[in-house]
Write a protein that binds this DNA or RNA. Structure first.
Length: 278
DNA sequence: ATGACATGCAAGGCATGA
């Protein structure tokens, strides 16, 4: 099973690039962020004509998330209220469309677009911290169903120095501040692990390059798009890749896709037990 | 310290992103 995530910075502007990459990469599920389109205007037909199913949770101009899959998903849930129906804060935060999840072959895939926060002095920064606190409650509620979890998206947080091209200068600023890092780590708990870091310990691997100041040409990026797996799925992970070349497209998104390959459903290695049945 | 660049909205520059 291949699961991918991509902040496309407008699904309509990036439509041909997304369809092309789907055709080349053939994920079972692609999670999109920043679709920037209200649901009635989502280019649904273009995806369906290419053989994809789409679940959407969008809004006009800003934010917006979607799930693109070969097979239909089960139990699609939108917003934090999808897991926290009686949580007033979850309902308020849901005014910004940033959360969608679905069940694919028994795996709960959760697609997030975490608020950016703008700067430490902005009112958007405490909003980001509040949002991450709600994410923790959301994950606690989700865990009670016992589904294997794959949580992906644009986290707008680089958790470690090795995730930033210039950590000496940028550590402590927004996307790399202690409070937001702590809030994300709280949400991850002991349950979720970064799939990319299971395979690649080194710095120099980025998923986002600023449009400004020639960041792409100078390879000055951040790794802020992540795939987190529960322990059961981590044991079945075979690779995790950042598809950097997409950032070099004409009129690219400022983010590159990230994908993980899982041996799911797990191979039947209980041959001895099966033999005992006969 | 500021702005670079890109997108949406809507028709002139803002709001937003990261």
């Amino acid at each position: 099973m291949r699961i991918a995530t991509w902040n496309v910075n407008s699904v309509r502007t990036r439509l041909e690039q997304v369809l092309c990459w789907l055709e080349q990469t053939k994920p079972d599920l692609l999670c999109l962020q920043e679709t920037k389109v209200d649901d009635p205007l989502f280019p649904m037909q273009a995806f369906e004509n290419a053989g994809w199913q789409v679940s959407i949770h969008g809004q006009k101009s800003y934010n917006g998330v979607a799930l693109v899959s070969r097979e239909p998903l089960e139990d699609v849930r939108c917003g934090f209220v999808g897991e926290l129906p009686d949580d007033a804060e979850a309902a308020t935060l849901g005014e910004q469309r940033r959360v969608i999840s679905g069940l694919l072959d028994g795996v709960r895939v959760l697609n997030l677009y975490v608020p950016n926060g703008s700067s430490l002095s902005s009112e958007k920064y405490p909003y980001k911290l509040t949002w991450l606190g709600c994410l923790k409650r959301y994950l606690d509620a989700q865990a009670e169903r016992g589904e294997p979890l794959c949580m992906v998206g644009d986290f707008n947080i680089a958790l470690e120095a090795r995730d930033i091209h210039d950590p000496d200068r940028l550590s402590g600023s927004v996307m790399a501040s202690d409070a937001e890092r702590d809030a994300l780590r709280e949400a991850l708990g002991n349950r979720l692990q970064d799939a990319f870091r299971m395979f690649e310990p080194d710095a120099g691997h980025w998923s986002w390059w600023d449009y400004r100041t020639g960041a792409w040409d100078r390879d000055r990026g951040w790794r802020i798009d992540h795939i987190y797996l529960c322990e059961e799925l981590m044991g079945l992970a075979r690779s995790c890749s950042i598809h950097k070349q997409l950032r070099g497209n004409v009129q690219p998104s400022d983010h590159a896709p990230v994908s993980v390959d899982l041996d799911w459903p797990p191979a039947d290695d209980d041959q001895d037990e099966d033999d005992q049945l006969f």
